[in-house]
């Protein structure tokens, strides 16, 4: 049984959906961040899979950019979480609702 690109797409979709569900259902900001990282990774996996499928190394280069941005995002995001924790003493996003209308 040959592993085709569809398998990777399916795997990637499942991982992406799990990440998305994590973002949606968890209240811990750090967990949400982790879920976002999971979603990014699923996308990265798909990029690499298509690079292999199309025999084109450009896809792998794009992954670098994604990783770089993810690294920057995590650094900023975690700093924000620290700041929020300092002011509100919680990282439960259920409690952080200053924009409630």
């Amino acid at each position: 049984m040959q592993v085709t690109i569809e398998w990777y797409i399916a795997l990637s979709t499942i991982l992406f959906t799990i990440g998305a569900l994590g973002v949606l259902v968890r209240r811990n900001a750090i967990i949400i961040f982790m879920s976002v990282e999971l979603m990014l990774n699923s996308a990265n996996l798909l990029l690499v899979a298509f690079a292999q499928q199309l025999a084109d190394a450009h896809g792998q280069v794009l992954v670098f950019f994604v990783m770089t941005v993810a690294a920057a995002e995590v650094a900023i995001g975690l700093a924000l979480i620290v700041v929020i924790f300092r002011t509100k003493n919680t990282i439960d996003i259920g409690e952080i609702n200053l924009l409630k209308g």
Partner: peptide
């Protein structure tokens, strides 16, 4: 009516995005 969706809850926002 429009105030109601503005829960301030990130999860809700993310849900609508999703």
């Amino acid at each position: 009516a429009l105030r109601r969706p503005q829960t301030g809850n990130t999860g809700n926002y993310a849900l609508s995005l999703f």
